[in-house]
Design a protein around this nucleic acid. Structure first.
Lengths: 220, 220
DNA sequence: TGTACATCAGTGAACGCGCGTTCACTGATGTAC
DNA sequence: TGTACATCAGTGAACGCGCGTTCACTGATGTAC
């Protein structure tokens, strides 16, 4: 039948939306049209279903309905795709943290706790993506977008703690190059450790009262 | 030359120690003599040099100077060897924790802090082994020895915190089946998170004063 | 509006890799007599 | 002390797997005129 251009036309005519063939039968086309995004989505689905260890560029290509060589045009190599996925993941984490913080009202304590809960929730509901974010060996650490996205997430996390009342380290330089204050690191550690241990099966993070009790240690 | 039994004999004669051929040229022998231990050691060296991701049963066999099929006799499959390594790792962690605790004197506070430092130190100096301990997907979770060793480590960690003064949850059952008190979980989380973040490059765990400042949050 | 052509985004076949596992085998060990 | 033999702990060759990457190619796109 040689490339179902017919189906393609039909589809275009039928929908005629501004959506612009987003649901067109990709497989039938030579040019995918949105392969970059499709590969990222495919990669995310692999992560969800199989975990970081089983991630594979070929499988991502397969899921996007495309040959094994195609991803190279968009990402160079496997690391490139994983890095792109990690960037999105950091963006999502940043969004989750700031949303939670803002929803928590004006009180510092409430804001910090809300962020802690959001952090754990994010890790819990996006396990493999959370794993990937920390597997530096798999990522292109030179990538500017990645560093930017990661720093944004860390910044969002530190903001609530470092801001109003806390024991602000009276350092000469407001943004010291090496070293946020221990209070931030402590908060990050406790929340990260809780999430990590839970993911690794040490305990159920949603045991009633548990996370609340743990977050009590954040109050300086 | 067909199996250097000569060398073997020479060696036996030469040393004649109670050590009993521990340094004999294994490669020259058909029967290794201590292959199980040699494979564990080889596996540990792979972990150190290459990290968990690159662990390989074949490589372990290679390093032990033995054919690829040999490990099967001792460990069944790759998971078996990794599990054996993890058991040893948990034992080492337990030892490090109890040693540190005992060396810290009688005060509860000092003991808890000493354990925290020991935990971080262990993770830092045995990165890949520490990784492996938490990669449940790679381990045989049914393995009795593994569960025993892991529980011993967790027990050692909780002992200092849960014991003397702390807010002991007045639960009806002294050893409740599901759920150590939040204070233990919090302590574990903070120390684990700190170690984990440091390993993953978030900050330098030995920044002067940093770990100390973080451990302040353990004091209830 | 039509045509030529450069550029882009895919194909698909092939390469080499290292892996885990299996299996018929064989050399060494140690036990029974 | 010597011999027969069962058992054990290795060998080495082979299998199939899925992977990442490369490369000459080709179909589609869009731009210049």
């Amino acid at each position: 039948v040689y490339r179902l251009d017919v189906a393609d036309h039909l589809n275009t005519v039928k929908t005629e939306s501004a959506d612009d063939s987003a649901e067109a039968p990709y497989k039938a086309r030579y040019h995918h049209g949105a392969l970059r995004e499709a590969l990222i989505a495919a990669g995310e689905s692999i992560l969800e279903e199989r975990g970081v260890e089983k991630f594979s560029l070929r499988e991502a290509a397969r899921r996007a309905g495309v040959s094994a060589g195609a991803p190279a045009h968009h990402f160079g190599d496997a690391r490139g795709l994983m890095t792109a996925i990690a960037v999105r993941a950091y963006d999502q984490l940043t969004a989750a943290l700031t949303t939670a913080e803002e929803a928590a009202g004006p009180e510092r304590d409430a804001r910090v706790r809300a962020q802690g809960v959001a952090y754990v929730r994010f890790a819990w509901s996006h396990r493999a993506k959370f794993d990937l974010m920390w597997r530096r060996a798999l990522l292109d650490l030179e990538n500017a977008e990645l560093n930017e996205a990661a720093n944004a997430a860390f910044g969002a996390l530190g903001r609530a703690i470092g801001a109003p009342s806390g024991e602000v380290e009276a350092s000469s330089d407001p943004c010291a190059p090496e070293g946020p204050p221990p209070s931030s690191i402590a908060a990050w550690s406790i929340v990260h450790g809780y999430a990590r241990l839970a993911l690794d099966g040490a305990f159920d993070p949603w045991t009633p009262g548990l996370l609340d009790g743990v977050l009590d240690r954040l109050d300086v």
